[in-house]
Design a protein around this nucleic acid. Structure first.
Lengths: 210, 210
DNA sequence: GCCTCTCGATAGTTAAGCTATCCACTACTG
DNA sequence: CAGTAGTGGATAGCTTAACTATCGAGAGGC
C-alpha cells in the first residue's frame, strides 16, 4: 500500500478511505497483513482523482460511475444513454414560471435544429433552468446566442459519437463516454476560454471582424 | 426581509448569512429595526443562487465575482481577461511528466489552429492537465478529438465575443462575461448531452453516418 | 398594552472528504 | 532470532463550507 501511495501521490490514509468507500476493489490478499495492488489500482486511483478534481464530482457519484464502468449494460446502443444518466446531475424540475419560459425557449431551438429524441432528456430541464435564470437576470442577449451554442454542441456531439463508435469494445466505449463527458466538459470549458482570448486578440489587432 | 425571502424563495437565515458574507449590500435603514430592500437585492440573490447551483461556485468565489461586477476595471479591452481571471479556478501547475506531455500536445493544437495570445493563459494549464490525465488513463482516442473540440470552442468564442461586443456599456458587458462564462459552461454541457442523444438517434435510424 | 415581528449577533448543525490513532500482527534487518 | 519498522483494518477526530437555529433588545400594529 505504501508503494501504491508513492506511485500515485495519494496519502495512505486516503487510499484506505477510498477502499472503505468501495471506490477501490481490495487487492489480492497475500498473507495475513500483506496485500498486493497492481496496475489497475493505480489507474483506478488516478481516475478517481481526475473525476473529483477536474470534474468536481462527489465521492458518491464517482462510486456510481465506477460501478457502471465495472458492470456496464450489454446493449451497446443503450450504453450512451445509460452512462449519461449516471453522470448527469439530477435537477429537480421546478414549475416556476421562469423555468417554464426557459423550457419553451429551448423547445424552439430544438425544433429549429431538428433535434429528435431529446424532449424528455434529463439535461433538458437543466438547460431550461439555465435559460430561465438568464432571462430573470435580464441576459436576453446571452439567450439570443442559444442557436449558435446549439450548433457548436452538435459539432461536438458528432465528434463524441465518432470517438465512441471507434472504441473497439463495450468496456472501452463506457470509459470513453464517462471520461469524455466529465473530463471533456472541463476540457471544453478551458478551450473556450483560450479561444476567447485568441479571438479577442484578433479583434484588437484587426485580424478579424465579427 | 421577510418579503425578500418570500419573493426569492430563500430562507431568512440564509439571507442573513449572505449579508454577513458580504454577498449582499445592506438595505436602506428605515428606523431602528426596519430595512428596505429593493429589486436589486432580489436580482442579487437570484444571481448568487444561479452561480452556486448551476456554476457550482463557492461563496468565496461568488463574492469575488460580485465585487468585480460592482467595480469593474474601466478599460473595456482588458475587461474580458480580467473577468475571466476572476472566474477561472486556479490550477497549480504541477511539473509532473504527464502534465508536461499534455502541455506539448495542447501547444501543437494551438499552433495548428493559429491561436495567439494564449500560451500563458491560466486555462492553458487546466486544459493541459486534463489532456495529461486522459493520456495516463489510456484515452488517446479522446485526445485525438482535440482538434475538433478546439474548432468548436473557437465557434463558441466568436459567438461569445459578439454578445460581449453588443453590450451597450461596461456594466452590461461585465455581466455578460461572468454569466456567459459560468452559466454558459453549464448550458453548453447540457446542450452537448442533448445533441449527443440526437446524433445517437440519427445514427440508429440511419439518418446520419459519421 | 401586549403580542408579534425585526434585525443582528452568536452559536450550533450537517455533510463531505479526508486524516490520525490504535492495535494486533508480520516480515525484513542485523 | 530478537527487535523494529511497517501492514491492514477499525474507529474516531478534524476541517471546511454552507447553512440554520436561538436569543435578546427593541419597534409596529391593533
Amino acid at each position: 500500500m505504501a508503494e501504491l501511495s508513492r506511485t500515485t501521490g495519494v496519502p495512505v490514509p486516503t487510499i484506505k478511505y477510498y477502499l472503505r468507500e468501495g471506490l477501490l476493489t481490495p487487492g489480492e490478499q497475500a498473507g495475513r497483513n500483506q496485500v498486493y495492488y497492481d496496475d489497475r489500482h493505480v489507474r483506478r486511483i488516478k481516475m478517481v482523482r481526475a473525476l473529483a478534481e477536474y470534474g468536481g464530482l462527489s465521492i458518491a457519484v464517482i462510486r456510481e460511475l465506477l460501478a457502471y464502468i465495472d458492470h456496464p449494460g450489454r446493449d451497446p446502443l443503450r450504453l450512451l444513454g445509460e452512462a449519461q444518466a449516471t453522470v448527469i446531475p439530477r435537477y429537480e424540475r421546478r414549475d416556476a414560471p421562469e423555468e417554464e419560459r426557459g423550457r419553451r425557449r429551448l423547445a424552439e431551438v430544438i425544433a429549429k435544429r431538428g433535434w429528435k429524441n431529446v424532449g424528455d432528456h434529463p439535461s433538458f430541464d437543466a438547460a431550461a433552468g439555465v435559460i430561465g435564470v438568464l432571462e430573470q437576470l435580464g441576459r436576453q442577449d446571452v439567450i439570443e446566442a442559444l442557436d449558435d451554442f446549439a450548433a457548436a454542441a452538435e459539432l461536438i456531439a458528432v465528434t463524441d459519437l465518432r470517438v465512441v463508435g471507434d472504441a473497439r469494445d463495450v468496456e472501452r466505449a463506457v470509459q470513453v463516454v464517462i471520461l469524455g463527458t466529465v473530463l471533456g466538459d472541463a476540457l471544453l470549458a478551458a478551450l473556450r476560454r483560450l479561444a476567447q482570448s485568441h479571438v479577442a486578440y484578433e479583434l484588437e489587432t484587426g485580424d478579424r471582424t465579427l
